[in-house]
């Protein structure tokens, strides 16, 4: 924090001299707040169970981070909101009916192994929340794919289990999906409001878009990663997702369903694990979209956003290194000069 100098004092300091108000804490807590609409929608559709699972993830994440720094006798960073955000995103990526130990194991892997053992915030190679979820999905394949049917009005305790829209699309095909939802408009409405089965925070597209709009207005994220991600998914779904051949698919189903909105706006844009160069962020988004659609259409899992982002996280340093921005005033070297 810069201390305000009195006018008659002469302060000698190193640059930068003018600082913005943005700090890690401020950005992290704003992102947490912008996820609030989606959390409220998840509690609305999945009942108190949603609050319980998300809360458990948050509390355990912050606690693990605090204990780790206490163990090392260092200053704790548990209060900067990043552990809170990891826990929140992990909770939003879990199905509603998981037993209590799943959030705990998920936070342990996400915070300790993925983030802190690599050096803490800013040094992690992968998105912690997504590694936590990938660990859980591979460890507990049955428990992690029990999807409760959403029943509105905050009271759902013992919901029936059902399949996610993407699961139905993969196993039974588009016609069956239409039978379940009635018509296309009802399907779109369900996906927009979040009245479908799925992970806690990913179902309601509108609530997530409100949160994303806040981040855009505050300029915490730019359009490059999310829009190239979503556009690639849309184009590929339109081109290869149809039953009747090329260019007959329905891009909207693929864009609105699954974790795409949540992943594209809140997890692919993570400052630490995505490229810093704008052009690189577009490549990052296109890669994410392509891998997502590859998994959704041809792979074993119905949903591929998580693995797509994790795979592209590996490539982020490579993308950064191969796309260097032009230095100010630098002249491009001609071939003759190079000789």
């Amino acid at each position: 924090m810069a201390t305000q100098a009195k006018s008659h004092e002469l302060i000698v300091s190193v640059s930068p001299h003018v600082r913005g108000k943005e700090t890690v804490e401020r950005i992290m807590w704003t992102v947490n707040l912008s996820l609030l609409p989606a959390v409220i929608m998840s509690i609305y559709y999945f009942g108190p169970r949603a609050a319980y699972v998300t809360g458990l993830c948050i509390v355990s994440s912050v606690l693990f981070e605090h204990l780790y720094w206490r163990f090392l006798d260092r200053k704790t960073t548990a209060g900067d909101g990043s552990a809170f955000l990891t826990g929140l995103l992990l909770g939003m990526n879990l199905p509603p009916s998981v037993p209590f130990y799943i959030p705990l194991i998920g936070s342990l892997v996400a915070i300790i192994i993925t983030k802190l053992l690599f050096g803490g915030l800013g040094y992690n190679v992968f998105n912690p929340a997504l590694i936590g979820r990938a660990f859980l999905l591979i460890s507990f394949p049955k428990l992690m794919t029990i999807w409760s049917e959403p029943t509105a009005k905050f009271i759902a305790m013992d919901a029936k289990t059902t399949a996610t829209p993407l699961g139905l699309l993969k196993e039974e095909g588009l016609t069956h999906l239409m039978e379940v939802f009635g018509s296309k408009t009802e399907l779109y409405q369900g996906l927009l409001w979040g009245n479908t089965a799925g992970s806690l925070g990913e179902t309601s597209a509108i609530a997530l878009l409100i949160g994303a709009a806040i981040l855009f207005i505050k300029r915490y994220i730019t359009w490059h990663t999310p829009f190239s991600f979503i556009a690639t998914v849309g184009v590929l779904a339109w081109a290869f997702g149809g039953d009747q051949g090329l260019f007959t698919g329905d891009p909207l189903i693929h864009i609105l369903s699954g974790g795409l909105i949540l992943g594209a706006f809140f997890m692919a844009t993570d400052y630490v694990t995505c490229p810093t160069v704008r052009k690189g962020q577009i490549i990052f988004g296109i890669g994410c979209g392509a891998i997502t659609m590859l998994i959704r259409l041809k792979g074993g899992f119905p949903e591929g956003v998580m693995f797509a982002i994790l795979l592209m996280n590996c490539f982020a340093p490579l993308i950064d290194r191969s796309i260097k921005p032009k230095m100010f005033g630098a002249v491009k070297e001609t071939k003759e000069q190079a000789k």
């Binding site: 194991i105 192994i113 053992l117 660990f135 591979i138 460890s139 507990f140 394949p141 428990l143």
Partner: peptide, 22 residues
């Protein structure tokens, strides 16, 4: 109870070796 299936997969091998080495 439910075991951590990932630990007998190759990914779990890398995790176990790395953590034990540390």
């Amino acid at each position: 109870g439910n075991p951590l299936l990932i630990m007998i997969l190759p990914a779990g091998g890398f995790l176990a070796v790395g953590l034990l080495m540390g």
